[in-house]
């Protein structure tokens, strides 16, 4: 008997399984030169889309929702929220 009919409600981890952000983000975080690489943004980001690369924070825009938490928690106000075009 072929077992092809057997499918199960099982899922496996995959990057971006929650879907990409698309074009509904209204503001985006932009890291300026003031960044001291302290990782506060990485710690608080709900999406895991910002982190320190080298000595400066880097944003992964594909999944960033533009919530602005990073800009708010940054101790040196190094992140600016810029309107999307």
């Amino acid at each position: 008997m072929s077992l092809e009919y057997q499918v199960f409600p099982v899922s496996t981890p995959a990057e971006g399984a929650g879907g990409k952000t698309g074009n509904w983000r209204t503001v985006r975080p932009v890291v300026t030169d003031r960044c001291i690489g302290c990782n506060a943004c990485f710690l608080w980001c709900p999406e895991g889309t910002i982190g320190v690369v080298g000595r400066k924070a880097k944003v992964y825009y594909e999944y960033c929702k533009g919530c602005g938490v990073c800009a708010n928690v940054c101790p040196v106000k190094a992140i600016e929220m810029v309107m999307e075009q």
Partner: peptide, 17 residues
């Protein structure tokens, strides 16, 4: 059994399809 919830397999069951 069809799958095992286990950190080794990392398989999950029952999220939204």
């Amino acid at each position: 059994q069809p799958y095992v919830i286990d950190p080794e397999t990392k398989e999950s069951m029952g999220n939204i399809f």
